[in-house]
């Protein structure tokens, strides 16, 4: 074995794009494998970088097990859940491109949840809780809020994600917010007014954009087109027809 091959077995070269006050700074990082066959996840690489070369590297993580949904980053330009995405030679790890970057790989997230603030489950209470929810309801509530679905969403792209603008909540929606609204529609406990409220909110967030869109992709495999977007559009059409 040549010297070069031995080294290749021990190290993995990646680029980590750090970020400070509006400027990207790519850093080359050599991940030291713990054994020849190790296939590290992106989060392993970030943790080792913080332990060695970049002690103040900022990135989000929580559970390390694809449950908490906070560790999403872009790998070679595509959103990936860092704790469960294998890294390959020359991969580029960068903050998600769909949300404003704060520092390094950390993006600001709360303008998404805030767009539904005070607008869901209004006037709840008093309904019979002892009814079974459908399989579809449970499919929707498997969402871990990783925001991978923001990628290539024309509705979300209408928002400005310029971090210099103080934007407490986004005006236009995204697949996640639609999913939250459709969950209310699917909830057997919701009242009719709560359901129609949810559909109205979807329209206000720009549901019409979905009409000309090939559809969204979920990071963990929820059928967003079939179970979120299409049902909302048909509900809207039904209301329009009446």
């Amino acid at each position: 074995m040549t010297k070069k091959e031995t080294r290749a077995r021990k190290y993995l070269n990646v680029t980590i794009v750090t970020h400070l006050e509006g400027k990207d700074m790519p850093v080359n990082f050599k991940y030291k494998k713990r054994h020849d066959r190790e296939k590290p996840m992106a989060l392993d690489v970030l943790l080792q970088a913080q332990e060695t070369k970049l002690p103040e590297l900022a990135f989000r993580y929580g559970c390390r097990a694809r449950n908490c949904g906070v560790c999403t980053i872009d790998i070679n330009g595509l959103p990936r859940i860092a704790c469960r995405s294998v890294v390959r030679e020359n991969d580029k790890l960068k903050a998600m491109s769909t949300l404003p970057v704060i520092t390094d790989l950390v993006v600001r997230r709360d303008q998404i949840s805030r767009q539904l603030r005070g607008k869901i489950y209004r006037n709840s209470g008093g309904n019979d809780l002892n009814v079974d929810a459908s399989e579809d309801y449970h499919e929707l509530t498997s969402c871990i809020e990783c925001y991978a679905c923001l990628h290539n969403c024309p509705m979300h792209e209408k928002n400005s994600i310029d971090p210099s603008e103080s934007n407490e909540r986004y005006e236009y929606g995204n697949p996640f917010s639609l999913l939250k609204l459709q969950t209310i529609v699917m909830d057997p406990v919701s009242s009719n007014s709560q359901k129609s409220d949810a559909i109205t909110q979807a329209v206000n967030l720009g549901l019409d954009t979905c009409l000309n869109c090939p559809g969204c992709k979920c990071g963990i495999g929820i059928d967003l087109k079939g179970k979120v977007v299409n049902p909302l559009i048909s509900a809207l059409k039904k209301i329009a027809d009446e």
Binding site: N67, S113, R114, L116, R117, G118, K119, I120, Y121, R122, S124, H138, T141, S142, C143, I144, E145, T183
Partner: peptide
């Protein structure tokens, strides 16, 4: 519960977001 803790995560999220 279906979806384990994530189901609780949604309920907790709702409890804060719903109340302006």
């Amino acid at each position: 519960h279906k979806n384990s803790g994530v189901a609780f995560g949604h309920a907790n999220w709702n409890s804060i977001v719903k109340d302006a």
